[in-house]
């Protein structure tokens, strides 16, 4: 196994140990019942251990495992999204198509990989299918907003997220076979950016950034946490195809897109009158509460890295032979 990846895992292990130890000491020093903030911190820490372990495992077990894992994450995220969106009966069959056909095929095309179809399967074919199936069901009330909600859910939870494992295939000259570390870079910087913004916001936060959309976000948190996460990205450059300055720039891009993704998903959540997307991860809320910042950063990071450092995906990954035999059985 890649020794650099082992170093990265070791760093995460040390970081989580430090977090758990701090929480433990804080709980010991406090007399009587621990407060709600501490209890939340402890359950958050515990959940981070599980999430980090699962994430590390998917990077080790190889491509099929990774794509399977992100397909499952997309599934859980979309499930939370649709559950909070009150869809009427007329959308039942449309949603069955979304969950059981559109989502698995997106990950099949990604895993294959058939880059051209991966890019257009959802924005073209699925987006045609969704309103057509709902129209055939015959319910017209709120038709446009119903279709838009389902399409938005599929776009963010499935299409955007599927760009994350797709980083494994991104052809970067001189970096062949090491792309798992690129995936690690994205997830590490985005998640640490969230955590650091939260910490800086709690310590120094004064000026609210978007009080209506996300009351906990402050300018001090964004700038302090963002700079710290950018520094972390620069420090991780040894494991990436980037120089330290390039890594800092890419980390800055992740901070910005991650922040904006979180902000947008927060606005969506609030428009649905909810505080959390679900209750699947103790202390964190739902899967989407943890993924919201990655949804926007994954596709942007994928394309920017591809543009500056990679080869053309479309040329490197045309339709695989086995798929062309399935789809065009009569041509020679």
């Amino acid at each position: 196994m890649d020794t650099q990846l082992l170093i990265l895992f070791g760093a995460v292990f040390a970081l989580l140990s430090a977090g758990s130890l701090t929480t433990w000491i804080l709980m010991r020093r406090r007399e009587g019942e621990p407060g709600a903030v501490l209890l939340n911190l402890r359950s958050r820490c515990n959940a981070w251990w599980v999430m980090a372990a699962v994430f590390a495992m998917t990077l080790v077990i190889g491509k099929t495992g990774t794509f399977g894992f992100y397909a499952l994450l997309s599934f859980l995220a979309l499930r939370e999204f649709i559950t909070l969106n009150p869809t009427p009966r007329g959308d039942h069959r449309t949603l069955a198509w979304v969950f059981f056909v559109i989502l698995p095929l997106q990950y099949l095309f990604a895993w294959a990989p058939w880059y051209g179809m991966f890019q257009i399967w959802i924005p073209v074919y699925a987006f045609v299918l969704i309103p057509v199936r709902s129209a055939l069901a015959g319910e017209t009330e709120g038709f446009l907003s119903r279709c838009a909600k389902i399409q938005w859910g599929v776009l963010t939870c499935v299409y955007f997220l599927s760009h994350l494992p797709m980083l494994l295939y991104l052809p970067i000259p001189g970096y062949e076979g090491q792309n798992a570390k690129l995936l690690f870079f994205l997830v590490m910087v985005t998640q640490m950016s969230d955590v650091l913004q939260y910490v800086f916001g709690k310590l120094y936060g004064k000026r609210k950034l978007a009080p209506k959309v996300s009351p906990s976000k402050t300018w001090e948190g964004l700038i302090g946490g963002g700079l710290a996460a950018t520094g972390l990205g620069a420090a991780l450059s040894f494991a990436t195809p980037f120089t330290p300055w390039q890594a800092a720039a890419m980390a800055g891009l992740l901070v910005l897109t991650g922040f904006l993704g979180g902000l947008v998903m927060s606005a969506v959540k609030r428009s649905l009158q909810a505080k959390d997307w679900g209750h699947g991860i103790p202390g964190h809320g739902g899967v989407l509460d943890r993924l919201d910042s990655i949804l926007f950063s994954a596709p942007v990071f994928f394309h920017v890295v591809g543009f500056y450092f990679g080869d053309s995906m479309a040329r490197v990954y045309p339709m695989p032979d086995w798929l062309s035999r399935v789809l065009m059985p009569f041509s020679q």
Partner: peptide
Amino acid sequence: ENLCRILPKGEFLPLPLM
């Protein structure tokens, strides 16, 4: 709660909602 969305009257395929 929500079970009528998971499997409404007249449908045969349950949706994986919460």
